[in-house]
Design a binder for these strands. Structure first.
Lengths: 194, 194
DNA sequence: TCGCACTTACCTACTAGTAAGTGAGTCGCA
DNA sequence: TGCGACTCACTTACTAGTAGGTAAGTGCGA
């Protein structure tokens, strides 16, 4: 088995920027912060990402792709819709455990200050999330394994928002234990009496 | 009837800072922004709030006090627990209609970069929120007007987080209409089958 | 020897914060 | 009543530090 190729500087920059963006926001870190961490100069970062908005756009693209991959992996597992919902919530819990927020959650808070291309990608993230969840919910209800009233897209929105908000609040107040308890209640929106 | 006293400069500064904090975050505005808006110098702001962290602390104190007052007004109204829940959600909806977020919601996203005294006040806001809601839920269940399982504090947490998250996401994706639909589903956590 | 990946050295714009000063108003007292 | 001492609310002019960004140059591997 070949050793994994050592990550490129561009990847290392994205990794560092992602960690920071998920904990202090996109406006909360500077090129200097990342440069210090990686023992390079800020000019190196500009070499790979000419403007910070480019770095942000690439960050969002990679993050959304990885999140979509995670959703696809959940879809492929042979587990019930209720179990898939739980797996979905666990994606958020794992992020909290690292003391971070969902990248798009924290960027939604900074939305008004984001460059246009980043805004569009944040919106797209939520739209894709909702679409995946709504489909899961519709299938689950059809099969009689989930129970809820109304448009699956509304329930999907409520679940995504509920988890985003729980992540946001639990990081400052409550921690992982409270996250779990609240997430359980949020998910119940789709499996009440199931 | 005496005319209302014209607001002091300090109040005008707090008003401007609050508006900005609720839309771009505490780190998203500078003393210069507020000074420009009020046609004063940044030194004027420093005269009233010697450091930005003092301004932030005063901001949080005033916001939390007003929010508590709003909760007290809801408590005093002679309406059912379910109606009180709706009134609670309407507090959030009103904020969204102005294109803002809950001050403590957006500050929770910036939590890691906030000065200590501000952090404590953000946490306190959520704790007081949860306490008020938990009491409402407990009374409502006792009276048979609300139905949910488990600790009222967990349900309270889920509702607050759900509304915070819905606010956060709906501002970028969905707007007021989607906020309402999702909020309705969030509230259902406490009145399912009621 | 070419060019990729990077550094050195710099720039401009902006950040919070400060020191010193000003004019208007108020207070205490002879 | 009048006047000196003082305060309040604010401005002017400045600081040190940091932000993102750039132009020119260097070293090294293919």
């Amino acid at each position: 088995m070949a050793p994994p190729p050592s990550p490129s500087t561009a990847d290392l920059i994205l990794d560092a920027a992602e960690r920071r963006a998920q904990s202090v926001g996109f406006n909360g870190f500077s090129y200097a912060d990342i440069a210090d961490e990686l023992k390079v100069t800020t000019a190196t970062i500009h070499y790979h990402f000419s403007a910070k908005s480019d770095l942000g756009a690439d960050l969002l693209e990679r993050y959304t792709r990885r999140f979509q991959d995670a959703l696809a992996r959940i879809s492929r597992r042979q587990i019930s819709p209720a179990e898939q919902l739980r797996a979905y919530a666990r994606l958020y819990e794992d992020v909290l455990r690292e003391g971070r927020l969902c990248l798009c959650g924290i960027l939604a808070a900074e939305y008004q200050t984001l460059p246009g291309p980043m805004r569009e990608k944040v919106v797209a993230f939520f739209a894709e999330n909702e679409a995946w969840l709504a489909k899961l919910l519709a299938v689950g209800r059809e099969r009689g394994e989930l129970r809820f009233a109304g448009d699956p897209r509304d329930v999907a929105m409520a679940i995504t928002c509920g988890l985003e908000g729980t992540l946001l609040v639990a990081r400052t107040f409550g921690g992982v234990a409270r996250f779990r308890a609240a997430a359980e209640i949020v998910l119940a929106a789709a499996k009440a009496a199931a």
